[in-house]
Structure formats: structure tokens, C-alpha cells
Amino acid sequence: MMEEHLFSAFPKDDDLFADCYTEERTYEFCGHVLKITQSFSTDLGVAGSVWDSALALCRYFAEQKISFRRRKVIELGAGTGIVGILAVLLGGDVTFTDLPRALKEIESNISVNVPSSCIHCSRVRALSWGHNHTWFPGDYDFVLGSDIVYLPEIYPLPVRTLRHLSAQSATVYLSSKMRREHRTISFYEEILPQHFQCRLLHRNEEQNINLYKATQQEHHAGRH
């Protein structure tokens, strides 16, 4: 049931995935050329595409010269895996997470983009927010997410998951298209600040994308 809720977050369009196909696109960040295969199909839905918010997060890491070297990283709602793949290439030990149906695509993109010498620094696991997050440790250095805020009815679930994963003072980077119909701004200005110190890092007016940095408030750390 949880999986269906997440995959029904965007309005259904019978023609959106009428023609099921895959497409490879090339992106370059930090001197790394990423070849990402997107799958446009009813099976993957929104998880099969590279979204602008993911590219915005990658671009921010590049512009700020952020290093994940020897850091423990987890990506939520990884989709195609592009953000986590860049984090691996920037030295991180990355756990990619999404719903079960999206994992094969992530694994495929990792195999194409991550050198064999670094493959041990990536792992792919299923995660349903608010449900099985306790199967994961709470000692990550970084928690990453792009366009994971889009369904007001389940906002408490990603918050619960973020609190657990960042229990030991992780830095959380979130990038979101600020959709009025999904009340995205309320998540960042009303809900998340109840548990995290949340700061707007960058806004792209043209694409209506905000990038946020969050750290768990001390009096909430360790409480789930």
C-alpha cells in the first residue's frame, strides 16, 4: 500500500507512458561524464526519469566542490541513481534506496558509471519511508534527496525516516520543485523545522527549484 501511495503522487496521465521506451542521456559534473538510462514506462512511473531537481543538486555539489570522501551517504528515492552515483565518484560510500520496482534501474546505471575499483562503495536497497527505515543505521554523514516531497498526506513518513537516518548529526541535502498543488513549501517551512534546522541554500526561479540544507535539532537527536 505504501508503495502505491508513493507512485500515485503525480496526477495520472494515460498518455504519459503510452510508448514504453528507454533513453540514455549524458551529463557532466565535476569532470565525470555520467551516462544515465531513463526508463519511460508505466512500471517505473516517476522513478524512471532524471528530474531537474536531481540535476540541480548535482550542480550544487559541483559548484560548491563538495567532497564525500570517506563519508557514509544514503540517498532517498534514488530513481535513476544519478545523485548517488555522483556522490560515489566524489568519494562517498553510498547506499541507494527506493521502492523495490526501481532498484533494477539504479543497479544498471551504477554498473555503467561506477568503476570496478569503487563498486564496493555502492549498495542498493529497498526502503519505504516511515516503515522499514529502522532496518538502516542512523550514523550516516549525509542524507540526500531530490523531489521526494510531493504528497502532503505522507509528509510525516519522510520526516520520520530523515530523523532516524540522521540521528548522529548527518547533513541533509534536499532539492525540490516547489509545486503549489503539493504544498511543498509547507513541508520546508512548517513541518521539517519542527525537527531540523533548515536553511535555503539556493533558489532557481526559472525552474522553481529550491535546495535546502538541514541538520537535526539537538533536542531531537536520537529520538525516533
Rank of each mutant, 00 (worst) to 15 (best):
R70G: 07
R70V: 03
R70E: 11
R70C: 11
R70F: 11
R71L: 10
R71A: 05
R71F: 02
R71T: 03
K72R: 15
K72Q: 10
K72A: 04
K72D: 00
K72W: 01
K72M: 02
V73D: 01
V73L: 10
V73N: 04
V73C: 08
V73Q: 03
I74D: 10
I74F: 10
I74H: 08
E75T: 05
E75C: 08
L76K: 07
L76I: 04
L76A: 09
L76S: 08
L76F: 14
L76Y: 09
G77T: 05
G77N: 07
G77F: 03
G77V: 03
A78D: 07
A78L: 08
A78H: 05
G79L: 07
T80P: 00
T80W: 00
T80Q: 05
G81V: 07
G81H: 03
G81N: 05
G81L: 04
I82R: 09
I82D: 04
I82K: 07
V83W: 11
V83H: 12
V83D: 06
G84I: 01
G84N: 09
G84D: 06
I85R: 11
I85K: 08
I85G: 12
L86V: 09
L86F: 13
L86C: 13
L86H: 13
L86R: 08
A87Q: 03
A87R: 02
A87Y: 03
A87N: 06
A87S: 13
A87D: 04
A87I: 01
V88E: 08
V88I: 14
V88P: 07
V88K: 11
L89V: 00
L89A: 12
L89Y: 06
L90K: 09
L90P: 02
L90F: 05
L90T: 01
G91L: 05
G91M: 04
G92I: 03
D93L: 05
V94A: 14
V94Q: 11
V94E: 12
V94N: 07
T95K: 06
T95C: 14
F96H: 12
F96N: 01
T97L: 10
T97N: 13
D98W: 00
D98L: 00
D98Y: 01
D98C: 01
L99S: 09
L99K: 02
L99D: 00
L99F: 01
L99Q: 13
L99G: 04
L99T: 08
P100I: 08
P100M: 10
R101Q: 15
R101M: 14
R101S: 13
R101F: 14
R101I: 12
A102Y: 03
A102H: 03
A102V: 12
K104Y: 13
K104N: 15
K104P: 02
K104L: 15
E105Q: 15
E105S: 15
I106T: 12
